[in-house]
C-alpha cells in the first residue's frame, strides 16, 4: 500500500497497479472502514480498480493527519466490511440486440451460442463505476472472449448495451459513444435519477447475466417504462 497525493484535497491510497480481484477487495474493504470511522474532513470516497481516492477538505484536515488516520485502517488484519450483493441481470443476446455477436464469434473462433454461454456462465465482480454515471466495470471475462476494443468506436449506442473489451464486460446506462463490442442488451435501468442511490450497482457487488428471449426483453422493458419493474439483489454469503 502507498499514499499518492493528488493535489491538496484528494489522496490516493494505492494497493497495486493491475486489475486483480484481491486488490479490488482491499480497496472496497478500506472504503468501508473509512466510511465507518467518519474521519472529520473526509468528504467522499471513490473506489477504483487498484486504489481508493479519498476526497477531503484541506481546511479541516491536513494530508499528513489524514494519512496517519488511514494507515491503521489499511492493514488487512482489521475485520472486513459487509460483503456486497449478488444481482441477476436479464440480458437478451438475440441478433437484433447484439450487433457485434457474430463478429465476436468469428474473432474468437467460437459459435455465437458458445460466446453467450461463456459470457453468461460467470459471476462477475463489480470493480468500479466510472466513465458515465452508473457504468460498471465487471470482470473477469472468460479468457477465450478477450478482444481489444473496436478499432472504430461507435458514436452512439443504445442504453442497456451489454459489451465486452479485454477482460471486462460492462453495461452502458445511457445512450453514449463507445468502443466496446456489443453482444447483448438489458432492459434494466442501471442509472435512475429517481432512485437512491441513483446507480443500481456498487463497487464490490457481484453480477451474473440471465439470457432472455426477445419477447421477455420487451415485456421487462414495458414494465420498466411503466415503473412496475424492480430488480432485487440476493445477499452474498
Amino acid at each position: 500500500m502507498r499514499f499518492l497525493p493528488s493535489g491538496d484535497s484528494a489522496l490516493v491510497v494505492e494497493f497495486g497497479d493491475t486489475i486483480d480481484a484481491e486488490v479490488s477487495a482491499r480497496v472496497t474493504r478500506l472504503a468501508g472502514r473509512i466510511a465507518a470511522c467518519a474521519i472529520p474532513g473526509v468528504r467522499e470516497l471513490l473506489p477504483t480498480f487498484r486504489s481508493l481516492m479519498v476526497f477531503y477538505d484541506p481546511l479541516l484536515i491536513g494530508q499528513g493527519e489524514l494519512m496517519a488516520a488511514i494507515a491503521p485502517l489499511a492493514a488487512d488484519s482489521v475485520a472486513a466490511a459487509a460483503p456486497g450483493r449478488l444481482w441477476t441481470i436479464p440480458v437478451c443476446y438475440a441478433p437484433e440486440q447484439a450487433p457485434d455477436l457474430t463478429a465476436v464469434a468469428e474473432a474468437t473462433g467460437l459459435g455465437t451460442d458458445e460466446v453467450v454461454r461463456r459470457h453468461a456462465g460467470i459471476t462477475y465482480h463489480v470493480y468500479m463505476l466510472g466513465f458515465l454515471p452508473g457504468y460498471p466495470y465487471l470482470g473477469d471475462v472468460d479468457a477465450a472472449l478477450r478482444l481489444p476494443r473496436r478499432t472504430t468506436p461507435r458514436t452512439r449506442l443504445p442504453a442497456g448495451s451489454v459489451a465486452i473489451a479485454m477482460a471486462m464486460t460492462a453495461i452502458y446506462p445511457v445512450e453514449s459513444p463507445g468502443g466496446w463490442h456489443l453482444i447483448g442488451n438489458t432492459p434494466v435501468k442501471l442509472f435512475d435519477l429517481a432512485a437512491d442511490p441513483p446507480a443500481l450497482l456498487a463497487p464490490g457487488d457481484r453480477v451474473r447475466f440471465r439470457p432472455i428471449p426477445q419477447a421477455e426483453w420487451q415485456a421487462i422493458a414495458a414494465a420498466v417504462a411503466a415503473e412496475r419493474f424492480r430488480l432485487d439483489p440476493e445477499p452474498l454469503p
Binding site: 468528504r43 467522499e44 471513490l46 458515465l132 446507480a199
Partner: peptide
C-alpha cells in the same frame, strides 16, 4: 457531492 463512486 458524494456520488463520484457511482460515476457521477
Amino acid at each position: 457531492f458524494g456520488l463520484q463512486r457511482f460515476g457521477v
